[in-house]
Design a binder for these strands. Structure first.
Lengths: 242, 242
DNA sequence: CGGTACTTTGAGGCCACTCAATCAGTGTGG
DNA sequence: CCACACTGATTGAGTGGCCTCAAAGTACCG
């Protein structure tokens, strides 16, 4: 299946085929990276954006103590502003959570003339706003919610976003993150993530069809734990009110 | 608010006198609100932005349980995207932390022609990026830092931003937030904020010249606790490397 | 088949929370 | 001018959620 045509979905406005037309322009070149690759270290010189075409990717920040926090998980079709012209330094590290396919977007490319460039700018702007909404929501959870609530929220958010991309099989989806990474995302230790997931599993809220998949078997209960209004989440976090 | 075409390309400096020239244009009207006023509730219909001219203002989100998290504190000169044309619903509540003076910016106004409008769009785009940087940094702290570290960080960030505005007297500045609000900002209870502040005060890290001011009397120690690189913070969070 | 990365489970400890009482400051109406 | 209400700060006692440390267990891969 060709992911690239799905790019339009989360925004409702970006036309299918955006990536193809940009590639055809000679403006974008698709790159690959293996799981675990760190594309950018925070603090590196950077004034570009990334377009993730396939796979999962994490934006994270690190304290001097070495503790890391994932700021946002990017899924296929998402943009990330790694650096800007104004501050040409990467604010976050960028790490591949799975094998990925992506493109680097340089300022000159986004600023170029032509219809496909204009659509690219629109898609980037929309993505920035959605990223901000997701980050705010995560901030709320980290500040105010229990471990169970945060993990339930993370799972539900990812399921919902993947569903909009057509990458779920019912309540089941591929989940390339380790418990360690899920801990970095939810502000917990890998040990406590494990305990919480096992608890969910014993309670019948989730299941592990195989090692790299997860199934949300009782989404109502999970929503309850996560303190989520699904409809609200869909419009605000996903922009999928089309 | 249609900033989409501008968002892609950041973006010059905000010129002094921007507000004045906009007001003179008749495009903006200055409004006032008293401390404690909630300008917008999250979920309200909204497609406008705010420009804070004077005072402090908080953007916050609330869980169904009633727990609130302040996402960002706005200081004079800051913009907040309350809603966008794409998602015409307020993602955050907007509350005055002090008596404030502000202006509402409607999409038509920001999109208008003229040099001052163009500068307004630039300033808004820059402000969005800086807000995102601040939010990410806060997220890192909420996920990974102790109470003392978070509070030290909050105080240092606010001092630094106020200093850039010329609103500090050395290490001292007016601080209109209650301990309750500081707790909402740092993800702590008012009780624990109190304990931590008293501990700082006894250790000589901060002082209370009067009821509504605070002095950071040992900034080096505070930076140490907050795990901050001051220079890094200045460039990334403040954009003041000029 | 050894090595490595990841998961799982137990034991124990600490940080921040809750509940609760007191104190200080500020404004308000009689 | 004082009594009262109300908001906010302070401090104590006790609890619990999540962390740390540690040891097995499991899956994958060369």
């Amino acid at each position: 299946m060709d992911i690239r045509t799905d790019l339009a979905l989360p925004f409702g406005r970006v036309h299918a085929g955006l990536v193809e037309s940009l590639v055809d322009d000679g403006g974008l070149r698709l790159l690959r990276a293996a799981r675990g690759t760190i594309l950018t270290h925070e603090g590196d010189a950077a004034d570009h954006a990334l377009l993730l075409v396939d796979g999962w990717l994490a934006l994270s920040k690190t304290l001097a103590t070495g503790d890391r926090q994932i700021i946002d998980v990017m899924l296929p079709g998402d943009f990330a502003m790694v650096g800007t012209r104004l501050v040409a330094v990467a604010a976050c590290s960028v790490e591949a959570l799975s094998d990925i396919e992506y493109a680097v977007i340089r300022p000159a490319q986004a600023n170029g003339p032509g219809d496909s460039r204009a659509r690219l700018r629109e898609a980037m702007a929309a993505s920035i706003l959605v990223t901000q909404a997701r980050t705010s929501e995560l901030l709320l959870r980290l500040g105010r919610s229990s471990a169970a609530s945060r993990i339930a929220y993370a799972l539900l958010e990812l399921h919902m976003r993947l569903e909009a991309l057509g990458r779920t099989r019912g309540a089941t989806f591929d989940f390339p993150m380790t418990q360690e990474k899920l801990g970095e995302f939810t502000g917990l230790t890998n040990v406590h993530v494990c305990r919480t997931l096992r608890r969910f599993e014993r309670a019948g809220l989730i299941a592990h069809p195989d090692a790299h998949s997860i199934a949300l078997t009782d989404m109502t209960a999970l929503c309850d734990i996560a303190d989520i209004d699904l409809e609200m989440l869909r419009t605000q976090i996903l922009l999928s009110r089309v």
